[in-house]
Computed example of a mutant assay.
Amino acid sequence: MPEVKVANLAKRFGDNAVLHDITFTIGDGEFFTLLGPSGCGKSTTLACIAGLERPTGGSIAVGTATFVDAGTFVPPEGRNLGMVFQSYALWPHMTVAQNLAMPLKIRKVDRREQDTLIAETLGRVGLVELKDRYPHQLSGGQQQRVALARALVYSPSVLLLDEPLSNLDAKLRDQARAWLKRLQTELGITTVYVTHDQDEALALSDRIAVMSKGDMVQIGTPQEIYETPATAEVAAFVGRCNFLTGTTTGPGEVRLDCTGKNISAPAATTAGQRVTVAIRPERLEILPSGHTAPADLNVLTAEVLTSSYVGSRHEYDLRLGDHVVQAETTRPGLTGEVTLAVEPAACLLYPTTDALPKDVEALVTIAQ
C-alpha cells in the first residue's frame, strides 16, 4: 500500500480559513489518526484527501500519483480511495450484496468476479450469511461492517474513515474498535482515521496528529502524545489532566501558587517565569496521613473531598491549597488529610501566556 503525502494544505470557505499549512506524511500500511475537537479541521482534511473538497492551496499525493497540486485536481472517482462515512451511507433499497456490488459495477468489473470479490470481502468482516438482508434489517454494528466492506471490496489504495464508530453504543464501540484494528493489521492497508474520541485514537493508531483551529499541533505515537504532550492544550484534550500555575525559582524548580511550596520538574527553566504545571491523575500517588514518601518525589499535603469507585480503581477529588485536583489509585476508603507524591518527571511545564486556550484556563482556575 502506498504512503500519503500532504504538504502545505490550506482550505478557505469564503473569508473563513479552516486549514492552515497542514503538512504530514503517512507511511505505507500505517494507521494514522486525525484527532481534535469539533471544528478543528480534521474532517475537512480528510475530505480534501478524498477529493470531496478542493483545497485552496498545497498538494496531496498517494504513492506516485499526485491528486492535488498547482493546476492539478483529480476528482474522487479517479483516486481509488475507500471511504466510510459517519452515517455509513448505505443504499436502503439494496441488499448487503447489492451495496457492495455498486462500486464494482461503476468500475465495470465482470459479474463473476463481482460475486467472488463480494464473498471474499463479506467473509473478512464476518457477514457472509447476511448478504441478502437490507440495511434496516441489520444492527448498527453490522451496518458499520457493511459500509467498511463496501469501501474495501474494490481494493482501494488507502482507506479513509470519518468517525465510523461514533453511532455505536459504548460496549459495541469497544468491540468494533478491536475488530477494526485486527482487520487493518491483517490487510496492511494505509488508513486515515478521523475521530474526536481520545481513547479510540490511542487504542487504534500507529501515530496521531492532534489538530486545533485548523492547525496541526502535534504528531506522534500514542505514547508520545499522552506522555509528552507538546502543549497544555494537547495535555487537556488527550486524557484527563490537573493544571496548576506557578513561578519558577530556578532550574527545574517551581513554586506553586496554590500551596506556596516548591516542586521539582525536569525542565530547563530560569527564575521568574510564569508556568502551568500539568500532572496526570494516575501519576499522583495518594498516601494516608503519616506515611512517608520516597525522598526523590515531590510531596504535597491535600485533603480528600470526594471518592468514586469505578471498578478497577478509585478516583478522588482532593483540595490542594486553594485548588481541587483529581487522583487515581487502587487504595479504597481514603479520607481526611493525605499525602500526594509525584515524580518530578510527571510534572510537565508549559509557559503561561495570554494565549492559553480557554478550556485550559478553565481547568487551571477551577475550584479556586
Rank of each mutant, 00 (worst) to 15 (best):
G321V: 12
K11Y: 14
Q137K: 00
T276I: 09
E233V: 01
V6D: 07
P103H: 04
T352S: 15
A50G: 06
E53A: 14
Q143C: 14
G63P: 09
H93T: 12
V342R: 01
D174A: 03
V74S: 10
E361K: 06
E285R: 11
G39L: 03
L46I: 05
D317E: 15
P156L: 02
F85Q: 09
G126Q: 12
T270Q: 14
T195I: 00
Y226N: 08
E361Q: 04
A302S: 15
V299Q: 13
L161S: 00
T44G: 07
H93W: 06
E253W: 02
L122N: 09
Q326A: 13
T292C: 01
A47Q: 04
R182L: 10
N242S: 14
T248L: 02
T191G: 13
T44A: 10
T247D: 11
P294L: 03
V125E: 04
Q273I: 05
G57L: 11
T269K: 01
H323K: 15
L300H: 13
V325F: 09
P76L: 05
G239C: 04
T247V: 14
V158G: 10
N99P: 06
K108A: 08
I219P: 11
H291N: 07
R283S: 11
S205C: 00
E361Y: 02
V62W: 08
S312I: 00
Q98I: 09
A201G: 03
S212C: 02
L168D: 05
I22P: 05
A355C: 09
M216Y: 01
S307Q: 15
D162N: 13
V109E: 09
T330L: 05
S312N: 00
A178E: 10
S87D: 13
V74M: 10
P92N: 12
D132E: 13
A176Q: 09
L159T: 08
K181V: 07
A355N: 11
E30D: 08
A17V: 11
L320T: 07
L349I: 05
A209N: 07
V360I: 07
L52P: 01
L183D: 01
R133G: 06
A209V: 08
R12M: 11
K213H: 05
N298Q: 10
G246S: 08
K358Y: 01
D110H: 12
T365G: 10
D69A: 15
N80E: 06
T23D: 05
I208Y: 06
